[in-house]
């Protein structure tokens, strides 16, 4: 198979390493403040609500809903257009960007507020990305 250009990959920092360690073992890790119980993302070693430095990472349920998205129609290294770029609202509260996979990349199939569930896609030895698929569909694999 011809070498295809790869998508941009994250370079973890000390503050985010636990998140990327989590995705490699199938966990979507969020952080919760030990002082005020605020749950937040993206990772940082203090609470963005009350500034407490006492925070703990925990595995999220991996469930969320499709909060908003676009369907990109232009060429992009590592992607087959059209593909969705989505904002997922996680069950625990925070929002994160991801791709919705495992369903047609159309406005009809991508219904706002539809339930989603995380699936993990290994991109390299170090990096596994959290993607999302419709919660009602099981085990479908669509390359993005």
């Amino acid at each position: 198979m011809a070498q295809r250009p790869r998508r941009a990959l994250p370079r973890p920092t000390p503050e985010t390493q636990h998140f990327w360690d989590g995705t490699r073992v199938g966990e979507l890790r969020l952080q919760r403040c030990d002082a005020c119980a605020h749950v937040y993302f993206p990772p940082r070693p203090f609470c963005p609500s009350c500034a407490s430095r006492s925070v703990s990472a925990f595995p999220a349920s991996g469930r969320g809903t499709l909060h908003s998205y676009v369907i990109h129609h232009r060429p992009m290294p590592g992607f087959e257009p059209p593909y969705s770029i989505a904002i997922v609202k996680l069950e625990e509260g925070p929002q994160m960007m991801s791709n919705v996979v495992g369903c047609p990349q159309t406005p009809e199939a991508l219904e706002l507020d539809m339930p989603l569930v995380v699936e993990f896609k290994e991109m390299s030895e170090d990096i596994t990305l959290p993607l999302f698929r419709p919660a009602m569909l099981r085990g479908s694999e669509v390359a993005v």
């Binding site: 990959l9 985010t16 990109h72 992009m76 590592g78 993005v144």
Partner: peptide
């Protein structure tokens, strides 16, 4: 850079600048 928060938590999902980022809230 891939080490920024945007590089880690947005760029891997294939946005290509403002046309795919600025537009993201609109459907909501």
């Amino acid at each position: 850079g891939g080490g920024t928060l945007m590089g880690q938590f947005e760029m891997p999902y294939g946005p290509m600048g403002p046309p795919t980022l600025f537009t993201l809230p609109a459907l909501r």
